[in-house]
Structure formats: structure tokens, C-alpha cells
Design a protein around this nucleic acid. Sequence first.
DNA 1: GTCTATATAAAGATAGAC
DNA 2: GTCTATCTTTATATAGAC
Lengths: 196, 196
Amino acid sequence: MIKPFSELSPSAERVVDAAQRLIQQFGYNGFSYDDISREINIRKPSIHHHFRTKADLVQTVVQRYGHRFGEALRQIDESEADPVKRLERYGALFAATYEQDRRLCVCGILGAEAAAMSAEVAEDVRKFFELNLDWLTSTITAGQQAGRLRVVGTAQAQAYGLFSALEGAMMVGRGFGSDDSPANAGSTYISNMLIT
Amino acid sequence: MIKPFSELSPSAERVVDAAQRLIQQFGYNGFSYDDISREINIRKPSIHHHFRTKADLVQTVVQRYGHRFGEALRQIDESEADPVKRLERYGALFAATYEQDRRLCVCGILGAEAAAMSAEVAEDVRKFFELNLDWLTSTITAGQQAGRLRVVGTAQAQAYGLFSALEGAMMVGRGFGSDDSPANAGSTYISNMLIT
DNA sequence: GTCTATATAAAGATAGAC
DNA sequence: GTCTATCTTTATATAGAC
């Protein structure tokens, strides 16, 4: 068990910030303690003082990321009643990330690299996916019950499809060298479900 | 300019095979010449003899992969006239990859890691995406003209959406620890466009 | 075309002083 | 909590013999 992200000291927080950005741009195996060191002007052993291993550091990044995402979902639910608009707001979360120098979803890229990761990190990534798929499933179901969405197959399958489209759009956008927002892929997906 | 993949010697081919598998499972930064060495029982300098640098090797992997994918698309076009069935066959290509130990699309994972790659490799990855999006755009357009598919927005946007869903489904499936086929995500996407 | 030996740099991590 | 110094392992790559 690692120390919870809520108890990080200010400098530990700066390490986590830098690590998150580096993961989103280069992936787990694409950055080192030395990169963080250069980025926030701290020596490598100081980073080890806060996070004994790289796996611990990345786990903290994932846990904080998942927590923040959960907060964002709660925020959407509190401020928006229409399920269709909720889904659009959801897509905008991915867009906001990608618009920052084409950064990827932390768990998207770590999911892709899952085979090269510690079991602990992999489990937290899985929980992130679960959080998202559960939220999408109930929001899509709400849209169906409100007569706004046409659900072909199950709401679970549509949730998986929409989530995949958003995660995939970031990855494809990167490789295609496109600034096109993942929100477009999200809107397209939602439009296909929409009852007009 | 690297040597074309069509002129590889048998042992160079074995190196490319091993490299491709390692990329699909661990990503560009997740494998080394040493891994290949252990895998196919050859010494590291022998690999360097065939491929001067890792970037050269990976570029060969991507070019061969793109060529084979192009052949598969041609194969689909030759043997299947119905646009909807063509799209299903297309989804099955991704499924076939994922079913081998949950391997990812070579260009999917390399696209995600694009920021950490050489310009040459990045360009070949981009061409792969272009090949796929062009094929999907014209196949979806054909489906629309045949009165089989309902295209909300543009065929380009739907092509991007379907491609993202398939690439994303592999990534998400990995991170979620699911054997669920990406073909399901593809079928779901196609079903949403289908005129019944 | 393949090998042994080796160079060089980087990565993850620890010891111990301040 | 931060540092200098150091260790160990690994990665990419080259020299040169067979």
C-alpha cells in the first residue's frame, strides 16, 4: 500500500504533476526520474525520498487521476440533468486533456502498456475504466428511458463503444498528427444514438 | 531510407517478427534488442547487422505491417461486395490481432507513443492511419449510396469514429483485462449506423 | 552472417552527509 | 527534505575475429 495522494507534501505534488504530464506524452517507459529531475529542478534521490520506486510514483499518479475524474463526473451529474448533455460534457473532458499539447488519457496509455506494468498499477487502471464504463452505462440508460437515445444492443455495449471511441480518438489523433478534438468522435458517436 | 521489407533475409525476417510481437505487447520503449536476442536465439550484434538502429528496425516493422494491412483490405474488396459486410470483415482484422494474447495494433500503440519516436517512424504510422481512414470513408460512402447505412454528419467523421472505436477497444480491453473482442465494439458502431 | 568483447550512456535505486 | 556520490543493471551501439 502506498501513501494516499491526498497526503502529499507540496514538493511531492510537483513530482506527481511532472510525472503525469510525462506519462501522458511519452508513456510509462518513455520517461525517467532524470526527466522529472530536469523538469522541476530537484535531484533524483529526492524523488526517491517521496516515491520509493517508479511503480509507486505512477500508482499515485493514477489514483489521483482517477479521483479527479470521479469528481468531474459528480460535477456533471450535479449541474446537468439532461443525459445527452451529460454525455457531451463527458466528451469535453477528453477534449480538454487532448487540447493540452495532445496529451493522452493517463489510463489510456497505461492500459496500452499494461503488459509492462506492475499488478498494482494495472489494477488501478482497471478501476478507472470501471468507473467510466459504469457512469456511461447508467447515463446512456437514463437517456434511453427519457426517450432521447436509441440503444441498439445493451447500454453496456454502447458505453464500451463510446468510451473506446473517445480513448481511441486521442491515440489516433496523436498518430495521425491531428489537432481534431476527441470530442468530435464523441459527438459523432452520440449523434448516431440520438432519436431526432 | 531503409532497406524495403520485401528484401529481408530469412533471419532478418525472424528479427522483424519478434520485434513486431514485442511492440504489440510492450510498446516501442518496452522492448530491447536483448529481448529479441533471447526470443529468437541470436546475438545482439547480429541484429544490428540487419538493422543498424532500433528506429530502423521499427520502421521496417511498421512498413511491413502497413503493407499487409493494405493487402487484407484489397482481399476484402475482392471477395465481398456488400459494404456492410466489408465493414464487419474489417472489424474482424482487429479482432484477429487482439485474440493473439491481446496484442494491439502496431500503429495504435506507436501512435500513442508518437511523441517519443523518430520522424520517419511517425510518418509511416501516419500513412497507416490514412490508408485505413480512406478505405473506411469510401466503404461507408458506398454503404450510404446503397441505402444500407445512415450517415450522420460526414462519411469522414464516421470513418474516424469507427476507426477510433476499434483502436480504442483494443487499448481499453487491455487495460480492463478483458478478452472481449474489439469486433464487438466494431459491430456495435456499425449497428448504430445501420438502416433496418 | 554470426559471434565475443567492449564502449558509452542512461535507468532505477541506495548510502549517508547536511 | 534535499543533496553529492555511488552502485548495479540495462540499453543502444561498435570493433573486429571467424
